[in-house]
């Protein structure tokens, strides 16, 4: 899938905003939201939050995890653990990108937060590359990937499954060709066709 599609899926996450206008409840197909009361925090899907922010109709409330102390802890834990730690949010990267992109002035210490989230992402990606390498070397056709977020999984998508497919294909070939003698006939055939 395209990263934009993962972002699209991530945009359904619920975030908190403080609107600067008042309105009744709004009945969307994906659920009802509101009522909007100027100055009072309320929950809406991320896509709506970003849209309202762009129209300057609200302020975004930073999600609980978008805080330097919390993120420092996550980073430390991620560094120490051999496995992937559980992220505070299934779509942390999407949420961070959209919120910091649209409303960085609403987030305290936005620049630092951006950097540390990128650090966490980098640590996790390098872990992912190491475990992919180990998986391929052990010739495995199965792996468990708990706590990886969708965006992280998607980032290895063209590579890892296809490499495993190739490996599987080679295993099939070796299994098929071992009982039979080497197919010399095809060699001679291709040789003769070259002569013509």
């Amino acid at each position: 899938m395209d990263p934009y599609e993962i972002e699209f899926i991530g945009e359904n996450r619920i975030v908190s905003i403080i609107p600067n206008f008042s309105y009744d409840k709004i009945f969307l197909i994906s659920g009802e939201f509101g009522p909007f009361r100027a100055g009072l925090p309320m929950n809406v899907p991320l896509w709506l939050a970003v849209m309202l922010k762009q129209k300057q109709k609200c302020r975004l409330v930073p999600p609980d995890w978008m805080d330097m102390d919390v993120l420092e802890n996550i980073k430390e834990e991620e560094k120490l653990s051999r496995f992937f730690t559980k992220m505070p949010n299934e779509h942390y990267m999407v949420e961070a990108k959209l919120i910091l992109g649209a409303a960085s002035e609403d987030i305290p210490r936005a620049a630092e937060i951006k950097t540390i989230i990128k650090d966490i992402w980098d640590i996790r990606m390098s872990k992912l590359r190491t475990s992919m390498d180990a998986l391929m070397k052990s010739g495995g056709s199965y792996g468990r990937l708990d706590h990886l977020t969708m965006m992280e999984i998607n980032s290895v998508k063209p590579l890892l499954p296809q490499a495993m497919d190739e490996l599987h294909r080679m295993k099939m070939m070796t299994r098929k060709s071992t009982p039979a003698t080497l197919n010399t006939s095809t060699f001679s055939q291709s040789g003769s066709s070259q002569n013509i």
Partner: peptide, 8 residues
């Protein structure tokens, strides 16, 4: 429940 895997 809730676990993630890569497999055939």
């Amino acid at each position: 429940e809730g676990s993630q895997h890569i497999l055939q």
